[in-house]
């Protein structure tokens, strides 16, 4: 466990001077800004803060923006070591292949957390400063609770991309796959939400939302099972790919 914590800490040291990684966090503010214009144009009076937060932070952000950002991040995390032929130096330290993979996953987990917190704070500030919503404790609790759920589930749903990045020396395929993977997750939500990890994640997120109407009733256990199976397959695949990485 201590070794893994050391690896996670080192993963953050490796990101020094990577402005793009920090820059991607600005994507968390896209939807809050759009929400201000959208609801501002509707000229709605006394807007329900939860409705605003759902639009500004809990819709396209976890469905599209965060998965794409995490996909690009996972590619960046793997790319340098592959591209600069560093893995052999790491293996002779020695570093366990799975510990290496999980350290990257934990970076994604923390990044996802920061991303969702920025999105949440951005939504609150955007709503308050534009005068669209009042500040209420239940809505804040709802917003931060959902953001926490998203930040934990999204990295797990993006593990297949991380596994693919672990198996690739270049970045084109993992980045391309990220886009296709994200849109498929969004599209499959309407047909079968228990095939794709991102659809399964959305099913878990909207489990107690009466406004969202889906084709079939939500089975949270099944959704977690789908996420678990994909995570397991991704981990095994990554372990295998890293063993053959030289």
């Amino acid at each position: 466990m201590r070794a893994l914590l050391n690896l996670i800490q080192i993963e953050f040291l490796k990101l020094r001077r990577k402005k793009f990684v920090a820059g991607m966090l600005f994507a968390a503010l896209i939807m809050p800004v759009i929400a201000v214009f959208y609801f501002g144009m509707l000229d709605t009076k006394e807007l329900d803060p939860i409705k605003f937060y759902k639009w500004a932070t809990l819709s396209y952000t976890p469905w599209i923006l965060l998965p794409v950002v995490l996909g690009v991040l996972s590619t960046l995390l793997m790319y340098d070591e592959h591209q600069n032929d560093m893995l052999k130096q790491l293996w002779v330290v020695p570093i366990g292949k799975l510990a290496y993979f999980f350290s990257k996953f934990f970076v994604m987990l923390m990044y996802s957390n920061v991303f969702m917190m920025i999105s949440a704070i951005g939504s609150i500030l955007a709503g308050l400063l534009s005068g669209l919503i009042p500040l209420t404790a239940p809505s804040l609790l709802f917003l931060f609770g959902k953001c926490l759920e998203i930040s934990l589930l999204a990295p797990a749903a993006m593990l297949p991309v991380l596994a693919l990045a672990a198996a690739q020396r270049n970045y084109l395929l993992p980045v391309g796959f990220t886009i296709i993977y994200t849109f498929f997750g969004f599209i499959l939500l309407m047909t079968n939400m228990y095939l794709h990890p991102l659809s399964a994640m959305t099913a878990i997120l909207v489990r107690n939302d009466p406004v969202v109407i889906l084709n079939e009733p939500i089975n949270t256990g099944k959704a977690f099972l789908v996420l678990g199976i994909w995570s397991l397959i991704s981990t095994i695949g990554a372990g295998f790919a890293l063993r053959r990485s030289l």
Binding site: N6, L13, D80, D85, M86
Partner: peptide
């Protein structure tokens, strides 16, 4: 060991790169 070309993180200085390996090796 030094096998083939030496690979390090291009965004870090030599010292920072070695500090990472020192930390990895404990």
């Amino acid at each position: 060991a030094l096998i083939e070309k030496p690979g390090f993180y291009p965004n870090l200085t030599g010292t920072e790169n070695l500090e990472i390996f020192a930390k990895l090796r404990g």
